[in-house]
Design a protein around this nucleic acid. Structure first.
Length: 105
DNA sequence: CGGGTGACTTTAC
DNA sequence: CGTAAAGCCACCC
């Protein structure tokens, strides 16, 4: 199978429920890459034209909005997450302790 | 076909 | 504790 890891990532991202977020590392791992967290962001970068995926719910290992600069506006991502009821830390990172979504295998 | 790049993560000094 | 480098793999030129 062509392990469309790209499709896998998109699928996983779309599985993230409202009010939750996930990390690149987890998505990569679930896609079977384990370490290519970069590719996750890379794929989103390709698919950024595809608004069918809540890429704003994808953050780095610390919950920081690493890709916010790739959005229409740098604040778009944070505003979006806040509107979903997601809490932010003083560091401007998503409170993963409360909103980190764990995929069920 | 080869090299450079990237929205990450981890280890090493 | 801080910065640097490497590892990772698909995609573009």
């Amino acid at each position: 199978m062509a392990a469309d890891f790209e499709s896998k990532i998109l699928e996983l991202v779309q599985q993230i429920p409202y009010g939750k977020v996930s990390t690149y590392g987890v998505l990569a791992e679930k896609a079977g890459l384990r370490s290519s967290a970069r590719m996750v962001g890379w794929i989103l970068n390709k698919q950024k034209n595809n608004l069918d995926m809540p890429c704003h719910r994808v953050v780095n290992r610390f919950g920081a909005l690493s890709g916010k600069l790739f959005f229409p506006t740098p604040d778009y991502m944070e505003e979006m997450l806040r509107s979903e009821g997601i809490s932010f830390t003083a560091d401007g990172c998503v409170d993963l302790s409360k909103h980190l979504f764990v995929f069920s295998d």
